[in-house]
Amino acid sequence: MKHLTIDPENKQPPTRDHSHPPESLPKAKETKVHPNDDGGEDASLFFVGTATTILEWEGIRIMTDPNFLHKGDHVHLGPGVTAERLTNPVIDMHESPPIDVVFLSHYHEDRFDREVEASLRRDLPIITTPHAKGCLTSMGDDSFTDVHDLDFFQSLMLDFSTDVSEKRPAIKITGMPGKHVAGAAGVLNYFINAVPPTNGWMIELGYYSGPLVENNFNCGYRIYISGDTVMVDELKEIPERYRDQKIDLMLIHLGGTTIPSPSTPLLVVTMDAKQGVQLLQLIQPDITIPIHFDDYSVMLSPLEDFKKAVKEAGLSNKVVYLERKDRYRFGINGVL
């Protein structure tokens, strides 16, 4: 297993602009908790927009898929494929408090837009796919310098502590399978690379004592992020590998994203409402939060369709819906 130590004292702005960033996120529009809230929440997830979220726990702050373009901006998603952003992020990149690490599911402009690419500080730790690492580290003198790649089911242990106390926080991140396109179209895409390879993530928050090895790490909360994928057979391996391990939260990428355009919807490259419910039934997480559902013009499966499908499947008590600027709070089991 790979290891990465992140200095907890090295709290820097996420961007190259070293003006004074805020120390915290803005006040949430609404804070939500588990339907069976027990009052023990010590971690939170803040929804910025599209697939951009900020996870906070034990003084650690993680950003997923940074995309801070504004309404009316356009992104390039492949040969002849562009999309218009229809919403605004609730904060701008320079308004973000210090970020310890970025989890990037794939190298696409709606995940890592051109303004983010230009403005992020080059030594910010980024965990991503092998393909994306190749892109981020091949920019000559302007390359990112702390990029770590994970393929499917490869893991990395993130150590955020330098003290020697008996109980220290750590995060284990594991690459999960995902594919934008499947079947014959997937085979063709492999050769022409029209859309890039993508990862999901399994994020395990927990504590350890002694040396940071897997046997000393106790997971207190497990988050599965689907990433951009359609319902492919490779996803069936996830519940097999985690058969006896609870998945507390799933962040599911929806939207039914179509290419090359809404007027010519030849391929669906992210889950629509039907596939989203199928993934809930396959993974069986304790709670699911949908993200990535209405931010771009190529998303043709609205959140309302997912809500209806969830209700028809009898799973409404398993889903929490966040609007942009909402926060979801949850608790980590701290027992070693």
Rank of each mutant, 00 (worst) to 15 (best):
V320A: 02
L315F: 03
L322T: 00
S301E: 01
A313Q: 05
Y296R: 03
K308S: 13
K308E: 12
R324F: 03
Y321D: 05
Y296D: 07
G314M: 03
R324C: 09
A309H: 04
K307N: 05
N317A: 14
L303K: 12
N317E: 15
Y296T: 12
Y321Q: 01
K311E: 14
V310W: 09
Y296C: 05
S297V: 00
D295G: 15
N317F: 11
Y321C: 02
D305H: 08
M299A: 01
A313R: 08
K325N: 15
P302Q: 07
V298H: 08
E312I: 10
M299G: 02
Y296I: 11
L315D: 03
D295T: 15
S316G: 12
S316R: 13
P302S: 03
F293A: 12
K308V: 14
L300V: 09
M299P: 03
V310A: 08
D295C: 15
Y296G: 06
D294C: 10
D294T: 09
K308G: 04
E323K: 15
L303R: 12
Y321A: 06
N317H: 14
F293W: 10
S297A: 02
F293I: 07
L303N: 11
L303G: 10
E304T: 15
K318V: 07
D305S: 06
D295K: 12
D305E: 06
A313K: 04
F293D: 07
V310H: 11
V298G: 06
K311I: 14
K307P: 05
V310I: 13
L322K: 00
E312A: 10
K318N: 11
E323T: 13
